[in-house]
Simulated assay, not measured.
Amino acid sequence: MIELKFFTETNQPSREEKSRVLDFLYHHLENFGDPKNDIEKAMDYALKVYPSFGGFVLGAYDAGQLVGAVVINQTGMKDYIPENILVYIATHNEHRGQGLGRQLMEAAIQQAEGNIALHVEPDNPARRLYEKLGFSSKYLEMRLQKK
């Protein structure tokens, strides 16, 4: 049985738990991940470690072992920009294909207040799950990386 734990500004994870979620995301995001430092910034934003709009971190546990995690950041916007952005979601590679990703997404959707945006690479297999849950491609994202 999967146990879900939500961490927020008022329900902070312990230092050890935060480190465990950070390491989990870094390892299990695989080729769709970011540097550990960026993942930690997103988690800190969600947990309001520094001034931010907040959000939440969700951990999924099977017999006490972390098997999935989600980071949602609130954008401080509404309507023209969704209120939330799903920054990271990962499942343990041994638990893939068993509905855990769907369970995490459904819990995150229920917990988030307002609409949710996410970025997904075209070749990411999770894209089909997002589409089944009602996400659609409204825009093509373009970025300018200033040096």
Rank of each mutant, 00 (worst) to 15 (best):
residue 24 F to N: 00
residue 24 F to M: 00
residue 24 F to V: 00
residue 24 F to C: 00
residue 24 F to A: 00
residue 24 F to S: 00
residue 24 F to G: 00
residue 25 L to D: 01
residue 25 L to K: 01
residue 25 L to V: 01
residue 25 L to N: 01
residue 26 Y to C: 01
residue 26 Y to G: 00
residue 26 Y to H: 01
residue 26 Y to I: 01
residue 28 H to V: 03
residue 29 L to T: 02
residue 29 L to A: 02
residue 29 L to E: 01
residue 29 L to W: 02
residue 30 E to D: 13
residue 30 E to K: 09
residue 30 E to C: 11
residue 31 N to G: 14
residue 31 N to F: 15
residue 32 F to M: 04
residue 33 G to E: 03
residue 34 D to G: 09
residue 34 D to S: 15
residue 34 D to I: 06
residue 34 D to C: 10
residue 35 P to A: 04
residue 35 P to S: 11
residue 36 K to W: 04
residue 36 K to N: 06
residue 36 K to E: 07
residue 36 K to H: 07
residue 36 K to F: 05
residue 36 K to C: 05
residue 37 N to V: 14
residue 38 D to G: 08
residue 38 D to H: 06
residue 39 I to E: 03
residue 39 I to K: 06
residue 40 E to T: 08
residue 40 E to R: 14
residue 41 K to D: 07
residue 41 K to Y: 08
residue 41 K to S: 09
residue 42 A to W: 11
residue 42 A to F: 09
residue 42 A to R: 10
residue 42 A to H: 08
residue 42 A to P: 02
residue 42 A to I: 04
residue 42 A to L: 07
residue 43 M to H: 03
residue 43 M to L: 12
residue 43 M to C: 04
residue 43 M to F: 09
residue 44 D to R: 10
residue 44 D to V: 15
residue 45 Y to S: 05
residue 45 Y to V: 03
residue 45 Y to D: 03
residue 46 A to N: 06
residue 46 A to K: 05
residue 46 A to V: 11
residue 47 L to C: 13
residue 48 K to D: 10
residue 48 K to F: 12
residue 49 V to N: 12
residue 49 V to H: 08
residue 49 V to L: 15
residue 49 V to W: 13
residue 50 Y to H: 10
residue 50 Y to L: 13
residue 50 Y to M: 15
residue 51 P to A: 12
residue 51 P to C: 13
residue 51 P to F: 11
residue 51 P to R: 11
residue 51 P to W: 13
residue 52 S to I: 09
residue 52 S to M: 14
residue 53 F to L: 13
residue 53 F to E: 13
residue 53 F to R: 11
residue 53 F to G: 15
residue 54 G to A: 12
residue 54 G to K: 15
residue 55 G to Q: 07
residue 56 F to G: 08
residue 56 F to K: 14
residue 56 F to A: 14
residue 56 F to N: 13
